[in-house]
Simulated scan of single mutants.
Amino acid sequence: MRILVVGHYPPHRGGVANHTDNLVRELRKRHDVYVLTYGSITPREFEKERVYQVKVPPVFGLRGTLFALLGFLKIVKLHKKLNFDVIHAHYIGTTSFAGVLAKRKLKLPLVATAHGSDLDFMSKLPLGRYFVRESLAKSDGIIAVSHYLKKRALSLGAKRVRVIPNGIRPLKAKKAVKKYITFIGALTSYKDPKTFIRLAEYFPHEEFLVVGDGPLREELKRIAPPNVKFPGYRDDIDNILAESKMLIVPSLREGFGLVVVEANSLGVPVVGRAVGGIKELIRDGKNGYLFKDFDELVEKVALLLDNKKALKMGRIGRRISEKYKWEKVAERVEEVYKEVLGEEHDCSNKHARGP
């Protein structure tokens, strides 16, 4: 099968780019997969002939709207050259709307995946709401990475939604001393790193680590107590987690929460706010704790500082993380492709190229 994946993709960073990167790698074992993403970028050498881009200005609002239009035109042009079987857009909104326009023009089946902020944020913007509703109504297949997002998609007009969670890449780390209480994520308001900084004040004898970058970084550094370190964005998350006693996820909204599963895969328990997809990933008292307010967060962190409890939760977390493998995720995505193409369509491709 020849597939066009549309959305954020490396060298872009972030949750959607991480998702599409791993999905494409897995799908390429059996199919011929191409990518259309936001420019300007320099594609990685091993796939430079299969990654295309639309150059748009990095201005919020303008970037997405232009991508919807220019992305559509690019898809039409690429289809004439490559003859796709299916389009798979990641992020319901402007990205998927490029696919909606292409579907209308080319009569190609369209699959769209909801990742979180698309349905939680984009859908609340005047023009964004139009893009989201049109995409949900016109796509042939809708995927949500959590049951929480499935409910959001249905409330916004989707008729049928398949839940397929994110997968995790295998993480391996050397044995290390557990030193830190850790936050990993973009330093933006909805990830709520300020709550993490406030938490550090309650445990002055513990070391706290803020891994990530974003517009709040300088402000956080100004207000943080001395026991907080800011290493910035890091690619070696496995090594960071290997040195972590626990992971804190204070996000105010979260469609899935991939970092929860990544931490669990390395035996690190997680304390996460009881919102969105986080509630589906943390089995309270098993692989971590859920919290609703700050006092409860402090209480749960104090409990986890009991090393025996943390070790037990870490072992349970490893077992739970086993079901989030990319091989399984890709197989379920292929089932959606079969559905939108017709059950008789052969999803294999003997001419598929390597990764």
Rank of each mutant, 00 (worst) to 15 (best):
A158R: 02
E322N: 11
A112C: 15
I3F: 04
D238P: 10
V86Q: 02
V145M: 03
V329Y: 08
S265N: 08
I197D: 08
L149S: 03
V268H: 06
G185Q: 10
L110A: 05
S123F: 11
L311T: 11
E207Q: 12
G61D: 07
A330R: 02
I282G: 01
V24S: 03
L36N: 02
L341T: 08
L247P: 03
G64N: 11
K323S: 13
K191Y: 10
R319A: 12
K48V: 09
T195A: 03
K309F: 01
K81M: 03
A144V: 07
C347F: 14
D140T: 10
P355L: 12
A173N: 10
A176M: 07
L281N: 07
V210L: 13
N239F: 06
A144T: 14
A89P: 05
A242S: 15
H19A: 01
G93Q: 07
E343G: 01
G317W: 11
T188L: 05
K174F: 06
A224L: 05
S139F: 10
L252N: 13
I168N: 02
R318P: 00
V54S: 06
L266A: 04
V329D: 06
V111R: 08
I240D: 00
E262S: 03
G277M: 06
E327K: 14
I197P: 05
I197H: 09
E207M: 05
S123W: 12
R234W: 05
A173G: 12
M1S: 09
K107H: 14
L303Q: 13
A224Y: 09
G272T: 09
D192T: 05
L127Q: 04
I223C: 02
A158M: 06
L136T: 09
G116K: 07
K159L: 01
E299Y: 14
R318N: 06
L4T: 07
I240F: 07
D284C: 01
E335N: 09
L297N: 06
A98D: 10
L127M: 12
G288L: 05
L156W: 07
I184E: 02
S244P: 02
E334Q: 09
R13N: 07
H345T: 15
R217E: 15
R28S: 11
S135M: 04
F72S: 12
K309W: 05
G212R: 11
I143K: 04
F131D: 00
K338H: 10
G214E: 12
R283M: 06
L303A: 08
A137F: 12
L305D: 08
